[in-house]
Nucleic acid binder design. Structure first.
Lengths: 183, 183
DNA sequence: TGCACTCTGTACAGATCTGTCTAGTATAGT
DNA sequence: ACTATACTAGACAGATCTGTACAGAGTGCA
């Protein structure tokens, strides 16, 4: 075989689920895009729910790899901005339709396999922000950075305005310099 | 009749669409909750899409009324915090499942009737924030406040943590005092 | 060559969803 | 009492969706 059916399925599901939404995308559209028989889907996954989880797992791998790279390439004080700059760049190329995990959290039921992947994403994101803030990281500061991320992504999905990341970056700078704490 | 079927339908749709998602909620569940015949739905709405738009329209009315009240009751400098405090209070009562408009933006197709309602919501929200910031309001500051709102709502949907609104309020204070601008 | 495995293509079952239709009931206004 | 209007209950069509079944083709390996 040229590529494993499983990979092709996860890739196709990733593109369609992210662009059109999970519930709005049927199995048939996924296998058509993957160029794969329906039986191959059900040989590799127990059902659609497991395919959704695999799609998010792939996204989590990508994000984890990105954050690991940023951890290695930048000093803590510059990591958050590098992360948001990366998202801004992606948005300017026209590929951002919100946060895949936040979107999935809205679409899937609360007992879905996808839930654990979503929480693992947010765990990793919180750890990234905590490390970036350094020794004097406080819990509210971390939450504020998550707000910067999720807010910018949500707006990028609702409108189509990459400039929102510029605003998010400036706000993240303020968080890092401790300027967003109530006195 | 006790109440008009249309009202009952919009109320039922509002509860179900918001709690379970738009695409995951079928017409039959809506009319069952509304205690209404299916024909009544199609006498009042051309189709599900129009019902979704009516649901968002109702939400927009509620939000508009709230923002108008805040405009009347508070000086500009305290309006944003009053708004976020209101959301925090709602979250602590356990009713927040994200922003209805941001959620809908993810679920509905780009040519849906709902789109215009979504943009009207964001227009109103931006105006509220612009007024609240007063004479020296700058475009990036307004965007940052929208990020605070959308980010907090997205996190409230993904996790179930009302404390995120505390962090959002502190960040909004920083925006208001001009502390989040890059130097 | 033969076996095990993965794949394809397609038909099909069963559920669910949107939307239509018919027939009949309750109610308010004249 | 008559009529227009809004409603109910439920059957039904047609589409779509998830998931299963089956027969056969391609490939790697002993």
């Amino acid at each position: 075989m040229v590529t494993r059916a499983r990979e092709r399925l996860v890739d196709a599901a990733g593109a369609l689920f992210y662009r059109d939404g999970i519930n709005a995308t049927g199995i048939d559209r996924v296998i058509a895009r993957a160029g794969v028989a329906k039986a191959s889907l059900y040989n590799n996954f127990a059902g659609k729910d497991e395919l959704v989880a695999a799609y998010l797992e792939q996204r989590l791998d990508q994000v984890t790899r990105l954050l690991d790279e940023l951890d290695a390439a930048y000093p803590p004080s510059r990591r958050v901005d590098a992360f948001l700059a990366h998202l801004e760049h992606a948005a300017r190329r026209g590929t951002v339709r919100g946060c895949a995990f936040a979107n999935a959290a809205i679409e899937v039921s609360s007992d879905s396999l996808a839930r654990t992947v979503i929480t693992r994403f947010y765990d990793r994101l919180e750890r990234f922000f905590t490390d970036a803030l350094g020794a004097d990281a406080r819990e509210p500061d971390v939450r504020q950075l998550v707000i910067c991320y999720d807010g910018a992504m949500a707006i990028a999905a609702a409108w189509d305005d990459p400039a929102v990341f510029t605003a998010a970056r400036a706000m993240a700078h303020a968080v890092a310099r401790g300027a967003t704490r109530d006195e």
